Computed example of a mutant assay.
Amino acid sequence: MSEDALPESDRVPGAPHPRHTETLIGHRDAIASFTSAARSGRLHHGWLITGPRGTGKATLAWALARWLLAEDLSLEVAEAGRTPIARRIAALSEPRLQLVRRPVDEKTGRLRAEITVDEIRKLLSFFHMSASEGGRRVAIIDSADEMNTSAANALLKMLEEPPKDAVIFLISHQPARLLPTIRSRCRELRLSPLSGAEIGQVLATLEAEGDPEKLAALSGGSVGEALRLTGQNGLEIYQRITDLFADGGRIDRRRASALADLAATRAGADGDAFDLVITLLDRFLSRAAMAGLSGPPLPQAAEREAEVLARLSPHDLAARQWAEAQAELSARARAGRAVNLDPSALVLDMLIGLANRPAN
């Protein structure tokens, strides 16, 4: 199977793959840190790009790779997306760039669960073969969290003895899972969640609809999650959850059943309905717990959300009860789903459990 025909597990439905994304929004400090190092001639060989999932780590890695390989450091990073080399990179045909990701199992045609040591060995061969061409060579590992032990050890050896003029971008959603020795041999670019205004810019670029402030609040500033929510009517579902609790926690059984039935609908291209409903219930309970400790979180993710949360969680005792409910009921629902219990019944059971919780 050709490289460009591989399944792309890091691609968000409704959005272009990060290597096709020309407009980089946010993360000015990270960009400035990297470009400053490159222009000073002190560019480190390993760069660990970290931050919450969906905040643009891969998009940043591809943008910086285009900028480096354009070999004109006077350019701004955004300008490198319009150079001829950008088209080769988008087509995965640039000989000085190597992408490392989970390989496809030739028997099943599906992605393997891990990045194997063979993929890191291919990366070493890439650096040796491309050395004769001179200039920078770049590798992107997406994501480094998915390397198995043998792959991680092979990469560590490469970082300890880096090839000349090589730059390796390691994308990591959970850097604590990486070997400490790998982390210590990389410079870190930590990305922060995007603001509502930045989420709005992304939505406008992709011609996607949705309230950017509500999406930023509900997604935790993750573009990937915001796009999933827009694709699955997440804001509408969250509003329905908020409305369920508008009467001081007394839940209307009919409306609860309708929400539970929604969780049983067939999974579509944008993801699993059960997972979405449980995720949004988790978010609601988490925000209820936050409300009891420091007041309703802002901006609101639904109409009247602040009013509802203030009534449900007026003090720290209530916050603790909501946090305990979140942990217990969500774990029970997901465990039931793992053994193929009826998703509608699981969600309804969770909602009834919340309605029957002890009074604050």
Rank of each mutant, 00 (worst) to 15 (best):
L329W: 15
D252H: 09
G248N: 08
N148D: 15
R11H: 07
I171K: 06
A86S: 13
E307R: 13
A32Q: 12
A288L: 10
L298G: 08
V167L: 14
A273H: 10
Q201S: 12
E106H: 12
A217I: 05
S125V: 05
A263G: 12
S192A: 13
D10P: 01
H20Y: 09
K107Q: 14
M158E: 00
A70N: 13
D165Y: 04
P95S: 00
T83A: 06
H315D: 15
E133A: 11
A327W: 14
R183A: 06
T50Y: 06
G210Y: 09
G56S: 12
L309M: 00
Q174F: 13
R337I: 00
L189F: 08
R304P: 05
G231P: 12
R287P: 10
L48F: 08
I141W: 09
P95V: 01
D275W: 04
R240G: 11
G292T: 09
G249D: 05
D29I: 06
S195P: 02
A263W: 01
K57G: 14
I168D: 00
D272I: 00
D316I: 01
D211T: 04
R357V: 04
A260P: 11
D243I: 00
I49K: 00
D145V: 00
R110Q: 15
N148S: 08
G46Y: 06
A260F: 05
A151W: 12
L206Y: 12
D247Q: 13
L97P: 12
E76T: 14
P193G: 02
S344H: 10
H44W: 07
V223W: 15
R250C: 11
D247Y: 06
T59A: 15
P18C: 02
L259A: 05
G336R: 01
D145C: 00
L276M: 08
L68E: 08
E22H: 13
A86Y: 05
E207I: 01
P175S: 10
A30N: 07
S184A: 11
P297V: 04
I171A: 07
R11L: 08
R254E: 15
R337W: 07
A86W: 06
V117F: 08
P358A: 11
L227D: 14
I140G: 05
L293I: 14
S74I: 01
L189T: 03
A80K: 10
G26Y: 01
A152E: 13
T230D: 06
T242W: 00
R185C: 07
G46P: 03
E161D: 09
H173A: 11
